[in-house]
Computed example of a mutant assay.
Amino acid sequence: MRSLVAGLAAAAVLLLVAGCTPSPKVPKGDGTIEPLIFMAIPSQRPGPLEESFQPVLRMLEHETGRKIRFREAHDYAEVIEGVRTGKVQIAELGPFSYVLAKQQGARITAVVARVTQKGDIPEYQSYGITRVNSSINRLADFRGKKICFVDENSASGYLYPKAALQDVGISVERDIVPDFTHGHDLSAIAVSNGQCDAGFAYNTIVDRRLLVQEQLKPDELKVVWKSEMIPGGPMVIANDLPATLREQLVAALQQKANADYLRANGFCEGACVIADGYSYGFGSLDDAAYDKVREVCRKVGEKSCEKA
């Protein structure tokens, strides 16, 4: 009997201990334990792109207490799909890819876009470029030539150039040979090495980045066309994130995602080049800024623009 009592007592103690042991944490349906996924359109090759965003991502981790994982995108469509399906919670989209993502039902909010200098308006231009010794001197001369574009979902690398070519009577489908490089840097380099007769890339790539990186020489390319100003590609956050987390992300991006703050707080050193490698940081904007992109989208008659 004493043995039986002792056995029951021991079993009771074990049950008591088991009942007091914390159960392992299980990820919740709202993803509060899983890392946040960040993705950016591939405006340049993946390695430098990921590196240039690290100061901002480290700051966001510090502000939110959440791990943020950079995920490489192979083209613009992959980023659009990521935010549309909710698999990507923070992303930098291009102006056109943002319009398309919203059209396709992505539940996202535009928060900020890149600025080169403190106080700048977040906007930029598309350049039409060719080699400096080329006989091409205007968009009308692009007819019959092999032309480098960036991506069919790019504003400065396709949408605005297509509209400009239409204005001079050139059809992208019939009057030129298009070549999509899937990177603004790759488009400019393809023109410089003769892969294309002419092409398009955004202004900072041509004016600064590739020159500083010594991938282009100062006298190698000439600009034969400049677009109107285009609203900068927005950094967006998913609407389905918890409200407090969304507020933290918005405040951090609007107030602290700049070289001054990042340098002063140890997230980067020296020149503190961020985002595309030569930006000061980000400036605030909202969805209404992209109405002009929607207008150009409808103008070119793209099927993807019909409901934009």
Rank of each mutant, 00 (worst) to 15 (best):
G65N: 10
G144E: 04
Y158Q: 04
R131E: 08
E51D: 11
M229V: 12
K217E: 14
A259N: 08
A163S: 12
L210N: 06
L216V: 09
A155S: 15
A275E: 11
F38Q: 02
S135E: 14
A113C: 02
M39F: 08
Q248C: 04
I147G: 04
S134D: 10
Y98H: 12
Q103N: 14
A113I: 01
H74Y: 13
Q248V: 04
M59R: 06
R209T: 13
Y261R: 06
E214G: 03
V99N: 01
E123S: 14
R107T: 00
V172N: 06
V273P: 13
D179P: 04
L241W: 09
G199P: 00
P234R: 01
V150F: 05
Y158C: 00
D197Q: 11
G94M: 03
V177S: 15
P122H: 01
K67R: 14
Y261P: 00
S3P: 04
I108P: 01
A251F: 12
C297Q: 08
R294S: 13
V56E: 00
V83K: 06
G65T: 10
C272G: 05
K87V: 09
Y98L: 02
K118P: 02
Q44C: 05
L159N: 07
K102S: 10
K146H: 09
D240S: 14
A257S: 11
I129Y: 03
D240C: 09
S43T: 12
S284H: 09
G47Y: 12
R208V: 01
K67E: 15
R138I: 01
Q54E: 15
R45Y: 12
K217M: 09
K226F: 06
V300T: 15
M39Q: 15
R2G: 14
G270P: 05
P218L: 01
F70D: 06
I80R: 06
L221K: 00
I37M: 13
N203E: 14
V293I: 15
Q248T: 08
I121W: 05
A91P: 09
N265L: 05
S126M: 05
A101P: 04
N265G: 05
I274W: 07
G29T: 13
K307L: 11
Q254H: 02
S284Q: 15
L165G: 02
N239A: 14
R174S: 12
L4P: 04
S52K: 03
E72G: 00
D286P: 00
K303S: 14
E152I: 07
S154M: 06
K217L: 12
P178S: 08
G281H: 02
T116G: 06
K118H: 07
F96I: 03
A264G: 02
V17Q: 06
F70Y: 15
A18Y: 14
Y124F: 15
D151A: 06
L241P: 04
R69Y: 06
K303M: 03
P161H: 10
E173D: 15
L262C: 09
P218A: 11
